[in-house]
Design a protein around this nucleic acid. Structure first.
Lengths: 190, 190
DNA sequence: AGCATTCAGGAACGGACGTTCTTGACTGAC
DNA sequence: GTCAGTCAAGAACGTCCGTTCCTGAATGCT
């Protein structure tokens, strides 16, 4: 019953994620969304309820379709240097997570929950990479210090992307990530 | 000539910095500023020209009076572990820098210039700390790898504060920073 | 004392915001 | 073929935004 919708909801959510990754939540107006998404105001509110509803949908789509695959490949990286290179190659693929963490998570509990969950996933992948050198399995228990190290590694990779956004392309976040990863490599240090 | 102003400009700028550190640029309205700063609309525009003018003044005041002292103490920290502890103790003292970097620098060239300058200052302080163990001076030339490492260390400390803002106070950014700093300490690794 | 200047207070501006409403065209089920 | 239901299109809503203007009162200088 009724006329079928003339837009692809998944495509709309994907395009919304692209917009929200590039500008602040307040910096993206509903007019912007209507214009760039090809969906009409009415349908937007019918489908997502509000601007925030669309934002949450876009965030979840992004985490599932962009961050999750990256986390999976990080877990398969084998060593920290390769993991850092993967994160560096992701480039703007982390911008939405960065923006959501710094500007929305502090004022939106649902965003905070999604974001912390995603960050913990990254922690897990990087922790596995930090533990396992190519020669052995898990190291002796260190009282959680290595998971703390994974937290710091995640923070560093996000922070490097942050710096890449602020400074021009001249800053060398790639080399910085590589230098850090080399230091963290369990097969070299200790 | 004329009636003297009834507010302390430095105090106004300081209070503005506190507001901008807690919310997005768009999230702080001129009404908020007028209400919390005790200065009237007219005086605000007479003194700072615009909301952006006040924002820039607040950012510069903050960088000079909060970040710069922190950078100086970081440079005097002696070793990375103590530097990480100092950054951790700074707590919300880095939030304005974080917010400015991620949300304003990409769309405001003057903000970007201030921010990158401040970040480079942090790099310098951390680089000095990474180079110099308690036993020796500068290490042999490594082709700039250690300055890249300093960049990554800065990114990590900022990223940890980012995580502290998003997740509750339960996340342990302090331990993560300590774990990272210990790994980076030139007197222990290598 | 008189005047020029700057202040505080607050109303008012045009525009943009997120959201809702009205209208008419289209489609699927009966 | 009819009708209920959903769609697209866009006007319109009230609110808040950053900014400007108007009105007196207060001050320093001559």
């Amino acid at each position: 019953m009724g006329r079928p919708r003339g837009f692809d909801e998944a495509e709309v959510v994907r395009a919304a994620a692209a917009l929200f990754a590039g500008r602040t939540y307040d910096g993206v107006s509903v007019d912007d969304l209507v214009t760039h998404l090809g969906v009409h105001r009415n349908s937007l509110y019918k489908t997502f309820g509000s601007k925030r509803g669309l934002y949450l949908a876009a965030l979840r789509w992004y985490l599932e379709h962009e961050v999750h695959p990256l986390v999976a490949s990080l877990g398969r990286a084998g060593d920290p240097v390769r993991a850092a290179r993967l994160a560096s190659e992701a480039g703007a693929g982390l911008d939405f997570l960065l923006l959501a963490t710094v500007e929305r998570a502090p004022v939106d509990a649902e965003v905070a929950a999604e974001v912390t969950s995603a960050l913990h996933a990254v922690d897990g992948a990087l922790g596995a990479v930090l533990h396992a050198g190519p020669d052995n399995g898990r190291r002796a228990d260190d009282g959680g210090a290595s998971s703390a190290l994974a937290t710091a590694f995640t923070a560093a990779l996000l922070g490097l992307r942050l710096r890449a956004k602020a400074g021009g392309p001249d800053t060398g976040p790639d080399r910085a990530g590589a230098a850090l990863a080399q230091r963290l490599d369990s097969t070299l240090s200790r």
